[in-house]
């Protein structure tokens, strides 16, 4: 791997009022890898993910210490709209906006402005293709996005994120509401996307982490316990707690 880092996280602490969901986290995220993050609920996984594109600060009582660097720049010094475009999110539940399929994908691009109708159509088609949903929706682009099935909605949300040309995609338990077949399609999409994007995947499904992750991080009670190659974590973890969690002893 070339000596570059996408994200560098140093001594990161986060508070929401009196709650302290992330404690002294240090890690690096490399380009074009899939980093899986596992851990029991309330271990700080989602808070960590939402830190990477500054979604945490939407809450009133948010406080942080330490720093997060994206492409060697402190994210607090990056224009937040630019950062969020570059670091896209796919949420746990499929959350289409109350717009047509086409407008859902075009939304982020439109907000940025400066594209004509033709370009917009191309971008939407491209994004839908990359998310492996184009064939299913190409004839019904003007229909409401709520008419799609759960799995289709989730792939639409991936397309929507891709349309604004990010280089990092954050997946927050993207398959928690999906059946096994839809899950397989989303995972397939992730593996292909890895060639062009950096992917951070938070999942409650340990097997999913094992299937798609290049590296895997284990969080417990707001602390990063262990981070290593996925093979290593699943065959010979250094920490007994990681071992216990993977074997399903708690969580």
């Amino acid at each position: 791997m070339v000596n570059t880092t996408k994200f560098k996280i140093n001594n990161l602490n986060i508070w929401f009022g009196a709650i302290h969901p992330l404690k002294e986290v240090n890690m690096q995220i490399f380009p074009n890898e899939i980093l899986s993050i596992i851990g029991p609920s309330n271990s700080g996984k989602t808070t960590f993910l939402r830190m990477l594109n500054r979604l945490n600060e939407l809450q009133d009582n948010f406080k942080m210490t330490g720093f997060v660097e994206y492409d060697k720049k402190d994210i607090r010094n990056i224009d937040v709209e630019f950062l969020r475009r570059k670091v896209g999110t796919v949420f746990a539940l499929p959350l289409p906006l109350p717009l047509s399929i086409f407008e859902n994908v075009a939304y982020g691009v439109r907000m940025y402005g400066g594209r004509n109708k033709k370009e917009l159509e191309l971008i939407v088609e491209e994004a839908l293709k990359k998310a492996y949903i184009w064939e299913e929706v190409k004839d019904r682009l003007q229909e409401s996005a709520f008419k799609l099935s759960g799995g289709q909605q989730q792939r639409l949300c991936i397309a929507r994120t891709l349309a604004v040309e990010p280089d990092v995609i954050l997946f927050d338990e993207p398959c928690s509401g999906l059946d096994p077949i839809s899950t397989a399609k989303v995972e397939e999409a992730m593996l292909k996307l890895k060639q062009n994007y950096t992917i951070v995947l938070v999942t409650n499904n340990v097997k999913q982490a094992a299937r798609v992750g290049d590296r895997t991080a284990f969080f417990l009670s707001g602390e990063l316990i262990e981070l290593d190659k996925t093979d290593k974590i699943f065959t010979a973890p250094a920490d007994v707690r990681t071992d216990g969690y993977i074997r399903g002893k708690f969580g």
Binding site: L58, E81, R84, R85, T89, F91, L95, M111, Y112, V164
Partner: peptide, 9 residues
């Protein structure tokens, strides 16, 4: 949240 996460102001 979705709208903001897509980079909208």
């Amino acid at each position: 949240e979705v709208s903001l996460s897509l980079g909208a102001s």
